[in-house]
Design a protein around this nucleic acid. Structure first.
Lengths: 181, 181
DNA sequence: CGGAACGTTAAATTTTTTCTTAACAAAATT
DNA sequence: AATTTTGTTAAGAAAAAATTTAACGTTCCG
């Protein structure tokens, strides 16, 4: 009789999965994804697809918690909606290609960073230049304006580089420089 | 009399700086650096160096808040201690090269991610293989073990790639693929 | 050696975030 | 049309994080 044998094997399998689920959650936590969302994703990682009720059951969380967290995971493209005929329940599948998750997450972040800062810099540089060019202002202030202007101007090199990095990842060109295998 | 004129110019200069300070703080917040730490860094960005008291005064925060936040900023290498003779106050300077900050921050994160997950995967794969190779276990379970094993095995491609990316950034080789200018 | 100046650690408070219970809205089937 | 099923928004409770006040240790100087 191997019923007990199989039972132990099943536990062992779940234990193995849990090791990885733990690590994935912790990683996502590292990047500012909330622990709950991390656990949801990591759990789905080992399943083909799940609906909200199955997740709730598996993780012992409330339904609204599922709803909001899954939506967050969709936003960073780590979970996709699957259209399933015959049921009214929404079913979801985890994105299992980490290259895709990497791209979706970091490119989104970095683009936001570039936009945010480039806009601020443009505004600031305009003002600083006006100050520098106004000869009726004291040299102390004008020099400070010049110094700041140059600092900001230099930082644009970084933001333009970041943009190129994003582009290189989006087009997958980066894999010709740094191959996947 | 240009006293008033200069005064207005000074305000304008500070306003310009504030635009950028805001953007930098928001960016850092995006990456999980606490708002206080972000403001400290962003403020220092426009100064040559500052000591804890100057920061406290400028930002209206408590001394312990400074102390802990500056230490956090040191950890991610965004702020460096400057050794200043003649005073007992610790003085700090912001790292102004964003390429360096980028490297320090993301490489640290990514390396942590790789280590964490590779270790978990190694453990899990060992167990899964044992299950798969034990022919006394039901096929259902063995097949699931195999499926999971393959999934994890595939994910290692990503982690190895991430490691190479880190390496490429650390050695600055990446700038031959994606030039700074 | 005593006291002052700085910085850090500890404990407590406040604030922010996250999660849950409850009410609500939409859709579909009876 | 009414009821049931499913998902979402709203409001309140619980948990976590950040910040401050207070106490402590160290170092330097008189």
């Amino acid at each position: 009789m191997d019923k007990a044998h199989n039972e132990r094997a099943k536990e062992k399998l779940e234990y193995a999965q849990d090791q990885v689920i733990e690590a994935i959650s912790e990683t996502m936590d590292l990047y500012g994804v909330t622990p709950a969302a991390g656990r949801i994703y990591a759990t789905m990682y080992f399943k083909d697809q799940m609906n909200l009720d199955e997740m709730r059951e598996e993780l012992g969380m409330s339904k609204p918690s599922m709803s909001t967290n899954v939506r967050k995971l969709q936003q960073i493209e780590m979970v996709k909606k699957r259209f399933q005929r015959g049921t009214r329940k929404h079913t979801y599948a985890a994105e299992k290609d980490f290259f895709h998750s990497f791209m979706a997450y970091f490119c989104q972040m970095w683009e936001r960073e570039v936009k945010l800062n480039m806009e601020a810099i443009a505004k600031a540089e305009k003002l600083l230049l006006e100050i520098y060019e106004d000869e009726s202002i004291s040299n102390d202030i004008r020099n400070e304006a010049k110094k700041d202007y140059d600092l900001l101007n230099q930082s644009k090199v970084y933001y333009r580089w970041l943009e190129k990095l994003v582009e290189s990842i989006r087009t997958e060109e980066i894999y010709t420089f740094i191959p996947k295998e």
